[in-house]
Amino acid sequence: MLEGKVKWFNSEKGFGFIEVEGQDDVFVHFSAIQGEGFKTLEEGQAVSFEIVEGNRGPQAANVTKEA
């Protein structure tokens, strides 16, 4: 699992990017966010995740919000 911070997330469109120190930003789709209820992320929020190869390159999977 990697750790990063949410760079930005558009809850209307359901996607955004996660910043990872020393690496390129990683695309995140709302469907990759773990948990119940409305799936969104806040700018600057700490998250842990895995990287998988998507249709358009690397993207986040199994995203969990850090306490």
Rank of each mutant, 00 (worst) to 15 (best):
Glu53Trp: 14
Gln23Leu: 12
Gly35Arg: 04
Phe30Ala: 11
Val26Ile: 11
Gln45Arg: 07
Val6Gly: 02
Asp25Val: 06
Phe30Gly: 05
Ile18Tyr: 00
Val26Arg: 02
Gly54Glu: 07
Asp25Gln: 06
Phe15Met: 10
Gly22Lys: 08
Gly16Met: 01
Val20Trp: 10
Ala61Val: 10
Ala60His: 01
Trp8Cys: 04
Gly44Ala: 06
Gly14Trp: 02
Glu53Gly: 10
Ala32Tyr: 05
Glu36Thr: 11
Lys13Asp: 04
Asp24Asn: 13
Val20Pro: 03
Phe49Pro: 00
Val47Cys: 04
Leu2Thr: 12
Glu19His: 14
Ala67Met: 10
Val52Cys: 04
Lys5Gln: 05
Ala46Asp: 08
Val47Leu: 06
Glu43Asn: 13
Gln59Met: 11
Ser11Gln: 14
Gly4Trp: 01
Phe49Gln: 00
Asp24Lys: 12
Asp25Glu: 06
Val52Ser: 10
Asp24Phe: 10
Val26Met: 06
Trp8Lys: 04
Phe30Ile: 08
Ser31Val: 04
Val28Met: 04
Thr64Lys: 15
Asn55Gly: 12
Glu21Arg: 13
Ile33Glu: 02
Asp24Trp: 10
Glu66Val: 15
Phe49Ala: 02
Gly44Leu: 05
Phe38Asp: 09
Ala60Trp: 01
Glu50Ala: 10
Glu53Lys: 14
Asn10Gly: 04
Glu36Tyr: 06
Ile18Thr: 00
Ala61Cys: 04
Glu42Trp: 12
Lys65Ile: 15
Gly54Tyr: 08
Gly22Arg: 07
Val6His: 00
Glu21Met: 15
Gln45Gly: 07
Trp8Thr: 03
Lys5Glu: 05
Leu2Asn: 09
Leu41His: 01
Val47Arg: 00
Phe38Lys: 09
Ile33Thr: 02
Ala32Trp: 04
Lys7Thr: 04
Lys5Met: 05
Leu2Gln: 10
Ile51Asp: 01
Lys7Tyr: 03
Asn55Ser: 14
Asn10Trp: 08
Ala32Asp: 14
Phe9Lys: 02
Phe49Gly: 02
Ser48Glu: 09
Val20Asn: 07
Leu2Ser: 09
Ala32Met: 07
Ala61Met: 11
Gln59Asn: 06
Phe27Ala: 02
Gly35Leu: 07
Leu2Val: 12
Gly14His: 04
Glu3Lys: 15
Thr64Cys: 05
Glu42Ile: 11
Gln45Tyr: 07
Pro58Asn: 09
Glu66His: 15
His29Thr: 03
Val26Lys: 03
Ser31Cys: 05
Gly54His: 09
Phe38Gly: 07
Gln34Glu: 12
Val63Gly: 01
Glu3Thr: 15
Glu42Phe: 15
Gly4Asp: 00
Glu19Val: 13
Ile18Asn: 00
Met1Leu: 12
Lys65Pro: 11
Phe15Ile: 08
Gly37Ser: 08
Glu19Thr: 15
Ala60Ile: 02
Val47Gln: 00
Gly54Leu: 09
Glu3Cys: 05
Ala60Glu: 01
Gly54Gln: 08
Gly22Trp: 07
Asn10Pro: 02
Val28Leu: 06
Met1Asp: 06
Glu53Arg: 10
Gln45Cys: 04
Ser31Lys: 10
Val63Leu: 10
Ala67Trp: 11
Thr64Met: 11
Gln34Phe: 11
Arg56His: 14
Arg56Met: 12
Val28Thr: 04
Val6Trp: 01
Glu53Thr: 14
Phe27Gly: 01
Phe30Cys: 05
Thr64Trp: 14
Phe9Thr: 03
Glu43Lys: 15
Ala46Trp: 15
Gly16Arg: 00
Glu53Phe: 15
Glu3Met: 15
Gly22Glu: 07
Gln23Tyr: 13
Ala32Gly: 12
Leu2Cys: 04
Gly44Trp: 06
Val26Pro: 01
Val6Asn: 01
Glu43Ala: 15
Glu3Phe: 15
Glu66Gln: 15
Glu53Pro: 13
Glu43Tyr: 13
Glu66Lys: 15
Gly4Glu: 01
Lys5Ile: 06
Gln45His: 10
Asp25Thr: 06
Gln23Arg: 12
Gln34Val: 15
Glu21Asn: 15
Thr64His: 14
Trp8His: 04
Ser31Gly: 09
Phe9Val: 04
Val63Ala: 03
Lys5Asp: 03
Ala32Pro: 01
Gly57Glu: 03
Gly22Cys: 05
Val20Leu: 14
Ser31Tyr: 05
Glu12Met: 12
Trp8Ala: 03
Val20Ser: 08
Lys13Val: 09
Asn62Ser: 12
Gly4Thr: 01
Gly22Asp: 07
Asn55Met: 13
Gly14Leu: 02
Trp8Arg: 04
Ala61Trp: 10
Met1Ala: 11
Pro58Ser: 08
His29Gly: 03
Glu36Val: 09
Asn10Asp: 12
Asn55His: 12
Gly14Asn: 02
Gly14Glu: 01
Gly22Pro: 03
Glu21Trp: 14
Gly44His: 09
Asp25Leu: 07
Glu43Gly: 14
Lys7Ser: 04
Glu43Met: 15
Gly4Met: 01
Glu66Arg: 15
Gly14Lys: 03
Val20Phe: 07
Ala67Ile: 14
Ala67Phe: 12
Phe15Gln: 04
Gly35Trp: 07
Trp8Gly: 02
Glu12Lys: 14
Asn62Gln: 10
Ser11Ile: 13
Gly35Ile: 09
Glu36Arg: 08
Met1Ile: 13
Gln34Cys: 05
Phe38Ser: 09
Glu66Asn: 15
Ala61Asn: 09
Val28Ala: 03
Lys13Pro: 02
Phe9Cys: 02
Phe9Ile: 03
Ala67Pro: 13
Gly57Arg: 09
Asp24Ser: 13
Val63Met: 03
Asp24Cys: 05
Gln34His: 10
Ser11Tyr: 14
Val26Leu: 09
Ile51Trp: 06
Gln23Ser: 12
Gly35Asp: 10
Gly14Ile: 01
Glu53Gln: 13
Ala46Val: 13
Gly57Asp: 03
Phe9Gln: 01
Arg56Thr: 09
